[in-house]
C-alpha cells in the first residue's frame, strides 16, 4: 500500500486514489492535428525510474494530483497540484 502525500489532505493510502498514468503529456491545442493528439493519448516514455503521474484522490478531496514516483523502487518524492511544477520533473 503506497502512501501518497496529497498536497491538500496529507499522506493518504493508495486505495483512496485512482491512477491515470503519465502527467508529462499535455493535451495539444485543438488544431494541432492527428499526430499531436496521437502522441498525447498513446505515446509514453515509460521510464524506469522517476515518473510524473496523475493520481485522483477520489475518496478524499477529489483533486487530481501530480505525483513524482520511482517506478523501480516505488519511492515517492513529491506530489503537487495540477498547476504546479515539481522540482525535478516538469510537466
Amino acid at each position: 500500500m503506497l502512501l501518497i502525500p496529497c498536497p491538500y489532505c496529507g499522506a493518504r493510502p493508495q486505495d483512496e486514489f485512482h491512477y491515470r498514468g503519465d502527467a508529462t503529456v499535455k493535451r495539444p491545442a485543438p488544431d494541432a492535428g492527428l499526430q499531436a493528439l496521437y502522441d498525447f493519448v498513446y505515446t509514453r516514455t515509460n521510464p524506469r525510474g522517476w515518473h510524473l503521474e496523475w493520481w485522483h484522490h477520489y475518496a478524499g478531496c477529489r483533486q487530481w494530483v501530480k505525483v513524482e514516483r520511482n517506478t523501480l523502487t516505488h519511492e515517492i518524492r513529491t506530489a503537487v497540484g495540477p498547476a504546479e511544477d515539481t522540482p525535478q520533473l516538469s510537466a
Partner: peptide
C-alpha cells in the same frame, strides 16, 4: 457514474483549469 465524474474532473482540473 464514477468514471464519468472522474473524467470530467480530470479535464476541468488539469486540462482546462
Amino acid at each position: 457514474a464514477a468514471p464519468v465524474l472522474e473524467h470530467m474532473e480530470f479535464y476541468a482540473q488539469t486540462v482546462w483549469p
